[in-house]
Design a protein around this nucleic acid. Structure first.
Lengths: 341, 341
DNA sequence: CAAACATACTAAAACGTTTTAGTATAAAAA
DNA sequence: TTTTTATACTAAAACGTTTTAGTATGTTTG
């Protein structure tokens, strides 16, 4: 049967001292609280002997800190987010934090539900890839003095910590690269979303096209159609109606996936003939034929920055003082698919 | 500044009744404890009005239940595990449990560290993809009456709940399929591991070869060499030294990844000429050229079974009574790569 | 030599719940 | 009438910590 774990009280009783003393020693406050060297050692030794582990829940109740962080992304099974999670996990554990991952599917209701579930309370901080309509919820979290960092996208006009990439520049560079490789009619496949990251990607593409005197050619698929699995139909129609396309730039990894599926099913030749770039790298891209050029986000850097911004917030009394807005650079990984044919 | 959340005490004071009563009502014990209908309604209404949420930490301290599950896999960024996690997440939330994901990298030390970190206490149950040498640790968890389910692999001679697939059959079927498509010299690339899942896969392959009068041709790469990133070198050498291979069967998704990389880099023609099957499906496989045949695990079924086995364990006083060993069937998704050339 | 300070330690409250063991009243049974 | 039973409610302990506000000594200091 489950043997009860040893508590601070057991130690106190065994050594015939008070729990207060034990607690002080165990929390490294022996010096400060004038506990003698001998007693300190005695406590430490005994605690080690019986393999004492503090009950985190009791600690949390008393201190109000749970040592839990929530890492809320769009979909944890998406390659980009799971890779990010894996790295963040390690960094957080190193600092003594455990991480609860969850997926909001870019849906407002689900986001709000999850945030209330974590109850404004039992969790020390939130890292959130926000769905489009939860600006108010985020604002309330901040008002309640709860550490929040927005990831991947942010809200215009909301003063909140964020770690994002320079989407416009990334998109501009990718488009520019295609143009330099003599592609003249580049289709841009994106979501009909005005979230900051998608907006940046669209603007970057349009600016590059314009600066080079090319006509932008954009397909914006409504997000709920993508959810319903209709993405491929939109892309197919787009390709069919634009026979003059010589390149395609997919604004997200799932759009690239869908796009390649459509090509594979309907116009396999085009996969080799078109210039292709995908946003977000994927291990599979380098073994594809042709290997797919991609815009790669700096996963390690993103995770590191997240923790770097989070840690001071967890210490602070007032979260609203200053907010950090980190913008990171991406890397264009040039492979066969975007080179001049 | 952070406004203190409302507590049960606030409700009690406002309504001038005891906290006990409030607690009974809020826990749906009004009937049983003879609380009058009117008072019950009053409490419920007021709780709703002020948007009361119980402090989970206090609840946990008192009840000893944290409503947290640990889902420990080899690597959460591995497509198979992240897909599984995404599904399990939803199922668990539905039942009121939150999930902490973590990655043990199939390393014993890391596994043990993580398990002690969760402290035998603050977590209600464990779902574990065990590294090879933690049989004792698992045994101790069970002795301490903590719910554990092993996932993907199990330990011979340890009576513990598990949810796994029929690896031998899956591997046998895949090999058989290649043979039916006239492949006669099938290379099997696996890890030099005696973990149950890898053992099953090897045996299934060998049995199929033998039953068809073919000579098995196996490459077993030591796990630590794979960690060091040497996997590709082993595979390259294997291919170079076996010029007569007409098919390859990769026993894990990362081996398939490495194998395809090797082929792409050194013998791109072989990708089309060889018969190829990979264990574990990947979204990218269907858009590969040729589309890759794979052994697909029933993710939804696995997650459902996990929760189905876990829930009664969480209720029970004694976890050791009976153990469920669930073995699920896989599906061979036949695509171009394994068809007769 | 009293006042101030430093050292070594502790009692008890607090965190927000749940639950045990009640009390008080009214209705039913003996 | 007295006892039992049912109804409606509650005081207080408990979960395992941390922390505040102490006490009891011994040591300096003016």
């Amino acid at each position: 049967m489950k043997k009860k774990p040893v508590s601070i009280r057991n130690i106190a009783e065994e050594l015939k001292i008070s729990v207060t003393t034990v607690s002080f020693v165990l929390n490294g406050k022996a010096k400060e609280k004038h506990i003698s060297k001998e007693l300190t050692k005695k406590v430490l030794d005994y605690a080690k002997l019986i393999n004492y582990r503090p009950n985190q829940i009791a600690q949390s109740l008393r201190t109000g800190k749970s040592k839990l962080l929530v890492f809320m992304v769009e979909d944890i099974s998406n390659n980009f987010f799971s890779k990010l999670a894996r790295i963040f996990e390690d960094i957080a554990y190193e600092k003594g934090y455990k991480v609860i991952f969850c997926s909001n599917e870019n849906d407002d209701e689900k986001s709000n539900e999850l945030i209330t579930l974590f109850n404004f309370r039992q969790v020390d901080g939130f890292i959130i890839v926000p769905s489009p309509g939860i600006k108010d919820t985020i604002e309330n979290l901040i008002k309640d003095n709860i550490p929040v960092i927005l990831l991947d996208r942010f809200f215009e006009g909301l003063d909140c910590n964020s770690v994002v990439i320079d989407n416009e520049q990334a998109s501009f560079d990718a488009t520019q690269h295609l143009i330099q490789n003599k592609f003249k009619n580049i289709g841009f496949v994106t979501t009909a979303s005005d979230q900051s990251q998608m907006h940046g990607r669209l603007v970057g593409y349009e600016r590059a096209a314009q600066e080079n005197g090319l006509k932008p050619n954009t397909l914006q698929i409504p997000f709920n159609e993508i959810i319903k699995g209709k993405g491929k139909e939109y892309i197919k129609e787009f390709i069919d109606q634009h026979a003059d396309l010589d390149a395609m730039f997919f604004a997200t990894n799932y759009l690239a996936q869908s796009g390649l599926e459509v090509l594979k099913e309907n116009n396999p030749r085009l996969i080799k003939d078109l210039g292709i770039i995908a946003f977000d790298d994927n291990d599979m891209f380098k073994i594809y034929d042709p290997a797919i050029t991609s815009v790669s986000q700096p996963l390690l850097e993103i995770s590191t920055k997240l923790m770097e911004v989070m840690l001071p917030l967890l210490k602070k009394k007032d979260v609203t003082e200053t907010s950090h807005k980190v913008i990171l650079k991406t890397e264009l990984i040039i492979r066969e698919s975007s080179l001049q044919k």
